[in-house]
């Protein structure tokens, strides 16, 4: 009896002491200091990548490659920007970047006066080198351009079109009203090819970027030109709405539809055979090369940069290639 009681008390005591010590350990085994992420001494350069279209697959790839490259060189890279081509927000970010005195700015070119002014005067007055990426603004005194040769891309599309459609027909070029440099380049490229085919008639459609406007513009255009045989979207953002509208009116397959950029929904359309060809760009190469050029320039290893730009690879991807 006595033994049982002693045993019982011992067990109770041990349990209590165990729980108390576990609890005490939990309470007192904490670090009293705020967790400090150590400073990286090697972060020589603070670079920023600014785009108008954050979190789109294309720019995500650019940013990822840029980050990787920056980490390789021990530079810090921030990715800023606006969503859905909000150019005011985009310009504000650019201005903040300039005021924050970044060591280098890599920016998606925006063909407006404010952009040019910021790059030409503001950035220059703070001595910040600017590299445009993806789309160019040649008269903004940017150091260089890294991205696709949009003129050549236009030519490739046009050649493919002629190959698919033949030397006669009506082609509608859908462009947005932003007058972006790269869009002009693409159109110029297309025109430069189609000029030599008198049988091909080019018509232009200009819309704002939103879905409803694209659809309205398409309706209008197709009403006026029922004999159209091919569509070329100068800007990838327009393609999905365009294809949808065409699909509502008739079967899509007979039309020759081309676009630029390779976003996942674009690839889906391509796989479904709804569009006939797209131009694939190399976002990873853009991110990588822009960063490495910037760092080379900052180190003074590569002076001057080729102001004509560094063109990354482009490929035409046809519907028949699609897996």
């Amino acid at each position: 009896m006595r033994k049982t009681i002693v045993l019982l008390l011992g067990v109770i005591g041990a349990v209590l002491i165990w729980f108390t010590s576990v609890s005490a350990y939990r309470v007192f085994s904490v670090d009293w200091q705020l967790p400090q992420t150590p400073l990286q001494q090697s972060a020589e350069y603070r670079l920023v990548l600014i785009t108008q279209e954050l979190e789109t697959p294309f720019w995500d790839k650019v940013a990822a490659a840029a980050r990787e490259e920056a980490a390789k060189h021990g530079a810090m890279l921030a990715v800023w920007g606006s969503y859905n081509n909000d150019s005011d927000e985009f310009l504000k970010k650019l201005e903040i970047a300039i005021h924050s005195r970044m060591d280098g700015i890599i920016v998606q070119g925006l063909d407006t006066d404010t952009f040019k002014e910021l790059v030409k005067y503001k950035a220059a007055s703070y001595g910040i080198p600017v590299i445009t990426v993806g789309s160019d603004v040649p008269d903004s005194l940017r150091r260089t351009y890294v991205g696709s040769d949009h003129f050549r891309a236009g030519r490739m599309i046009a050649r493919q079109l002629v190959e698919d459609m033949g030397p006669e027909g009506t082609v509608i070029l859908v462009r947005d009203s932003g007058n972006a440099h790269y869009q002009e380049q693409r159109l110029n490229g297309i025109r430069s090819v189609l000029e030599s085919y008198p049988g091909i008639e080019l018509r232009y459609a200009e819309t704002q970027g939103t879905r409803e406007q694209v659809i309205a513009a398409m309706q209008d255009l197709m009403n006026r030109s029922p004999d159209v045989q091919a569509f070329i979207a100068a800007n990838a953002n327009l393609t999905a709405a365009m294809v949808q509208e065409i699909g509502r009116r008739s079967r899509v397959q007979p039309y020759h539809i081309y676009s630029f950029d390779d976003s996942p929904d674009m690839l889906t359309l391509l796989r479904d055979g709804l569009i006939d060809g797209i131009i694939e760009q190399s976002p990873e190469a853009m991110g990588r090369i822009s960063i490495s050029l910037m760092i080379d320039w900052l180190k003074g290893e590569k002076l001057p940069l080729d102001s004509g730009g560094y063109h990354t690879e482009i490929r035409l991807r046809k519907a028949v290639d699609a897996p």
């Binding site: 400090q36 992420t37 150590p38 400073l39 990286q40 972060a43 603070r46 810090m76 921030a78 903040i96 970047a97 924050s100 005195r101 970044m102």
Partner: peptide, 12 residues
């Protein structure tokens, strides 16, 4: 400054 906010703080 710390490792996480180094960039932002420098900009700041």
């Amino acid at each position: 400054r710390n490792g996480d906010n180094d960039f932002d703080l420098t900009s700041y």
